[in-house]
């Protein structure tokens, strides 16, 4: 998986530019996503990583306009290329428009962190699955049922005909996440957004779910956007990685570059803070200094400067770095790598 194509100008499925999603609270405005740019190539797995509160989930929610009040997409475009010249800017659609609803669940499927609460306990698995199928595919009830059972089978649920009539509370967490995946993929989406899909599951189930997602990608050929704070999962699953810090993308590159040649001090610190086989730091881990700043008090200049070990005193506190392109698919936002050509 880790060696799929990443040519420049590869067929881009989703192009996010200048995305800003703010939360207007009584205490002030939280700029959860503050100018995010990245692209998702067709058919690949892209990982979005960062600490809690870095805006990775809000980015994912913004893509389907699922951010709820008091959150709001302020600026930016989210262009979905559904093939050929068919481009839609999702950010510009009305939040309850027919167009947006046709993208939700059909072109882009989504699964969430909490399989225990992501399904309604009031309806059967079958009802919730066929609801999505019948919304997006022109099929009769029976066909929808067949399709749902087929999908349940595809995600490895034993005895899918019986599970179809089961209520979610009768299933285990891992099974529910499988149902969620089956539901998200039931209309053949081009992109599957997975928001920390394994965080709430136990370790063995985590591995099974990840493996299932890889296997389904081979089968269905959709792109996957995997939001996680687990670098191990990223190394295993993704071909490209987007590293976020305080609502900004600080580095984007293919997975090998991120792990072997990270350029942003934050990415480097992140990697040093996790144990890795063969990379012993005399048996010690280096935690990142400090903690994520309070969302109402963003540091000036480069948001990472208070915690950075390679700070250029006098500049990093005041200058907000622009994105520098180190090579066609490796960008970094750091004054150490300032692009001399602007």
């Amino acid at each position: 998986m880790s060696n799929s194509n990443h040519n420049a100008g590869a067929d881009i499925l989703l192009d996010i530019r200048g995305l800003k999603t703010y939360f207007h609270l009584d205490e002030g405005t939280v700029r959860a996503v503050d100018g995010v740019d990245f692209t998702v190539p067709r058919g690949t797995t892209i990982g979005i990583v960062g600490e809690s509160g870095c805006g990775k989930s809000v980015t994912a929610f913004s893509i389907l306009q699922l951010v709820e009040k008091p959150g709001r997409i302020e600026e930016g475009s989210i262009v979905l290329n559904t093939g050929g010249q068919n481009r839609v800017d999702i950010a510009a659609l009305d939040h309850d428009s027919e167009e947006l609803r046709q993208i939700r669940g059909k072109d882009i499927g989504m699964i969430f962190q909490e399989p225990m609460t992501s399904l309604s306990m009031m309806y059967t698995v079958g009802f919730q699955m066929t609801e999505a199928i019948r919304l997006h595919m022109d099929v009769e009830k029976d066909e929808a049922r067949d399709r749902a059972i087929e999908m349940l089978q595809a995600v490895g649920i034993p005895r899918p005909e019986q599970r179809f009539d089961a209520y979610p509370f009768e299933l285990s967490g891992g099974m529910r996440q499988r149902v969620m995946i089956a539901m998200a993929l039931s209309c053949d989406p081009m992109l599957l957004i997975a928001d920390e899909p394994t965080t709430a599951l136990d370790v063995t189930t985590q591995a099974q779910i990840l493996e299932l997602m890889q296997q389904l990608q081979e089968e269905f050929g959709m792109a996957i956007m995997l939001i996680t704070h687990d670098l191990g999962v990223v190394a295993e699953m993704c071909s490209e990685v987007v590293v976020m810090y305080l609502g900004e993308v600080v580095e984007q590159a293919d997975v090998d570059t991120i792990f072997h040649n990270p350029q942003h001090p934050y990415t480097q610190a992140l990697l040093e803070s996790i144990p890795r086989l063969g990379h012993s730091h005399e048996g010690r881990l280096n935690p990142i200094l400090g903690s994520v700043p309070d969302p109402y008090h963003r540091p000036s200049g480069c948001p990472f400067h208070p915690r950075c070990t390679q700070i250029i005193t006098g500049r990093c506190e005041t200058v907000h770095p622009e994105i520098s392109r180190l090579d066609p698919r490796h960008t970094v936002r750091c004054l150490l790598h300032e692009d001399p050509h602007g």
Binding site: E51, S52, G53, H229, S291, D294
Partner: peptide
């Protein structure tokens, strides 16, 4: 919905007291 619990995953960063 942005809150992700610090699970026992490698990248969970130890919180440090801020003033």
């Amino acid at each position: 919905m942005t809150a992700t619990p610090h699970a026992a995953t490698p990248s969970a960063l130890p919180p440090v007291e801020t003033p």
